[in-house]
Write a protein that binds this DNA or RNA. Structure first.
Lengths: 343, 343
DNA sequence: CTGAAAGCGCTTACAG
DNA sequence: CTGAAAGCGCTTACAG
């Protein structure tokens, strides 16, 4: 009556009347074991409900079969989606996932990185602090494979998977112009936010390229619904209304929509509206919101694939920087025609 | 120039000119180390950027500082919230989180449980298969502390944290009755779903107790928006309309709302409506939906606290079954008065 | 208070 | 193909 908790490789060896080395080899599928013996060992292990002790195996094999995922938070749709993608790949490739979130100070995060030693074969990192000099290199073993997600870290040796915010914003402006809108205002995101900056840069470039007669028109915002509402009010107070408003994220677009509704303007007949992110709410509001969708799960899955390739190839970085391509989602908030006289 | 990846306790010992035993004791805060020596060791470890190897430590100390979280999925608001609560406690108590999701067959899940050996000090389990005989006991070391979440497993030795679906449904019916509604219809959830069953049981009991003159009125549903819509249509086709509709979840309530809107009925003036779950959308629809909120993050946090107490107390189950208390969220979909002549 | 040594449960050259 | 043995990097009785 051995309890499953205490069955070790020794027990299996004794029971099968072979050495522990042979048990190890048979269980790990090393070719050099006689077929007879292999079968016996496997059967014995199964009968005894033997389960290798992960820590012991890690210690001698230097492999943990575990990937660490370092995120700023575990909450919300973005991270939920990201983890879903990561988890899919992890399961398919039989890896465990050690998640580590932090919120606090950089020191706390450094600590989180350091305690990963001996726990993981590689690390997926999404951190606002990743671009600090030494943050990664000083806290991580030099040999540990690392893949960065949505991190702006130029000249790094680590592969980085980013979201093409710039391209997404350009695609949106292009759509709005094609729909007949000329004067397109933009509600920006928080100062210093990289995603927000890239979206704005895309807007500015696209307007210049596709609607050169109209000067860009940028309103301040901070990604909150309230800031979108305020921007909408400012827009309404201006002497000449734009044909369309493009908000740097959906929440601000919804706030703006609220302001437009209050003022009795119809969307998209009087003014078109677009956002960025494709949050679940986007398709439930009236009118449903044109926006940019990012396949976040795919981003996570891609990062995980890349990382596992590195782990298997002993750190040889398989691919360089990659990018998640955003997708334009056209809904009715933008499909109305712009006033003909506006061009 | 030792690289941080290769600094071991031996290096620290050599550098500080003490034994590895002393280094270990100093680093782990065991009292029996001279203050002088302790300081020297700590300084040396810091200077060398020493980081203990987790697997080695686990192997000899039989502690991993890691809790395994076994969930059916990592996706969606429920799991996102649950993990958030679990993570909060984990961080506060300096534990790592090994997440394991599965979707597939019970065998796959058994395998997931078994590979936890040597990786975790305890397990948080939310599994539709947990009530199968032997599913837990046969795949887990008998000594491993386990806490079950939202699992219907009677007579188990494991602590279980459940959601009080029954009480929540009763509270909702009570609210509707107090708001003046008498004939209250119920849209049920999927056959065999425990949560759905409990909600329905709560509805039936409360109607019998609080509105004895009116027979219960249960419509079929399966938690999908579409099934809520269909139920709404069936309701509209019946000869006598109910005063209120209570759907077993919010998605069905929204589907029902859509059907009522189509038919030109006003909510709550013509018919009141309520759901269960308090999904984010619930407060954004018109009218905002009265519903039941479950503090999922608190559920996760409570489970984690309970589990960590068990781990620290060597498996002594601190508390028995506990329950997450739902909260009634009254919004305008239910606040209208029922027709006076209906009672 | 400190050190030498055994041991945790595996894997993996090294011989044969 | 197989086994004896060293070793992975720690912790922890056991002596002193």
């Amino acid at each position: 009556m051995t309890r499953s908790s205490t069955v070790t490789i020794k027990d299996v060896a004794r029971e099968a009347e072979v050495s522990v080395a042979t048990v190890s080899r048979a269980l790990n599928g090393h070719g050099n074991v006689a077929e007879e013996v292999r079968k016996l060992v496997l059967a014995t292990a199964k009968r005894l409900r033997y389960q290798p002790h992960a820590a012991a195996r890690s210690l001698s094999s230097r492999r943990t079969q575990t990937i660490g995922v370092v995120l700023p938070d575990l909450y919300g749709e973005f991270f939920s989606e990201l983890i879903r993608g990561i988890d899919q790949v992890a399961r398919a490739r039989r890896q465990h996932l050690l998640v580590s979130s932090y919120h606090g100070h950089p020191e706390e995060q450094s600590e989180a990185l350091r305690t990963m030693r001996g726990r993981v074969d590689g690390l997926l990192v999404l951190s606002p602090y990743a671009d600090r000099p030494g943050f990664l290199t000083e806290n991580l073993p030099a040999a540990l494979p690392v893949v960065l997600i949505n991190t702006h870290l130029p000249n790094t040796a680590y592969p980085v998977l980013n979201i093409d915010n710039h391209g997404g914003a350009m695609a949106m402006v292009e759509h709005l112009v094609q729909a007949g809108h000329r004067r397109i205002a933009f509600i920006g995101g928080p100062e210093g936010n990289f995603d927000a900056g890239e979206r704005q840069r895309g807007y500015l470039e696209a307007v210049q390229a596709l609607s050169p007669g109209n000067a860009p028109w940028v309103l301040e915002g901070d990604f909150s619904e309230a800031s979108g509402y305020e921007a909408g009010c400012r827009l309404l107070a201006s002497e000449q209304r734009p044909d369309a408003v493009f908000a740097a994220n959906d929440m601000m677009a919804l706030g703006c929509l609220f302001a437009l509704n209050e003022a009795g303007l119809r969307v998209p007949e009087d003014i078109a509206l677009a956002g960025f992110d494709d949050i679940p709410l986007a398709r439930f509001v009236h009118p449903p919101l044109t926006t940019i969708r990012i396949r976040i799960a795919e981003l996570g899955a891609g990062a995980m694939e890349c990382l596992l390739d590195m782990v298997q190839n002993e750190g040889e970085s398989a691919r360089p920087t990659m990018v998640a391509v955003p997708e334009l989602i056209v809904r009715s908030s933008s499909t109305g025609r712009a006033p003909v006289d506006s061009s």
